[in-house]
């Protein structure tokens, strides 16, 4: 059964036709072509499909598209501030925190969610915030460094 889902995606009101069995991940990737959100496992274990759902990080593969009705969704495509990368994005590039890049969108979202609620997290808090995001390339070091640096840089002083 198809139905129309109305929600806000990256600041735009959207009306999307979705199958009742679609996940939010299907809706984003297949229905509206926002392929920045990745599918690594499809059952909530890898975190590559992390998006902000009303400001909270969730695995889009575990959310039914129907649940997104009326919600405010932010995907990796909606994180940069116009032409300026978010400090987390910039720091991941500068610190070598992205290698193959497949887990990176999910990591960015988890880190942004962390820094939105905590301006100066400890390394332990950073590691726990991204513990749901598997990365097989980096050993997480440079990701943690990047998030730490983003926290102490312009992001902290951003409005």
């Amino acid at each position: 059964m198809n139905s129309v889902i109305r929600c806000e995606i990256n600041g735009e009101e959207r009306e999307v036709l979705a199958d009742g069995r679609d996940t939010l991940l299907d809706l984003l990737r297949d229905r509206i072509g926002l392929t920045g959100t990745k599918e690594g496992c499809g059952n909530g274990n890898c975190g590559t499909c992390t998006v902000l759902f009303d400001g909270e990080p969730v695995n889009a593969c575990l959310v039914l598209a129907g649940e997104a009705s009326g919600a405010r969704i932010t995907t990796i495509e909606g994180i940069a501030h116009g032409n300026v990368l978010d400090a987390v994005q910039q720091a991941l590039i500068t610190h070598g925190g992205t290698q193959c890049g497949f887990c990176t969108p999910g990591i960015v979202i988890s880190a942004v969610a962390l820094l939105d609620r905590k301006r100066a997290p400890t390394d332990d808090e950073i590691r726990h915030a991204i513990a749901g995001n598997l990365c097989r390339c980096t050993g997480y070091d440079k990701i943690v460094e990047a998030i730490r640096s983003a926290a102490s840089s312009s992001r902290a002083s951003a409005p």
């Binding site: 072509g33 926002l34 392929t35 920045g36 959100t37 990745k38 599918e39 995907t75 990796i76 495509e77 994180i79 940069a80 990368l85 994005q89 910039q90 991941l92 590039i93 500068t94 070598g96 992205t98 890049g101 497949f102 990176t104 969108p105 960015v108």
Partner: peptide
Amino acid sequence: TRPIRPDGADKVTGRAKFGADFK
């Protein structure tokens, strides 16, 4: 030296196209 990678911006913004992203 440590210049930034040419594929960096695409990877942190979700624009990098992986296997399943092509249609």
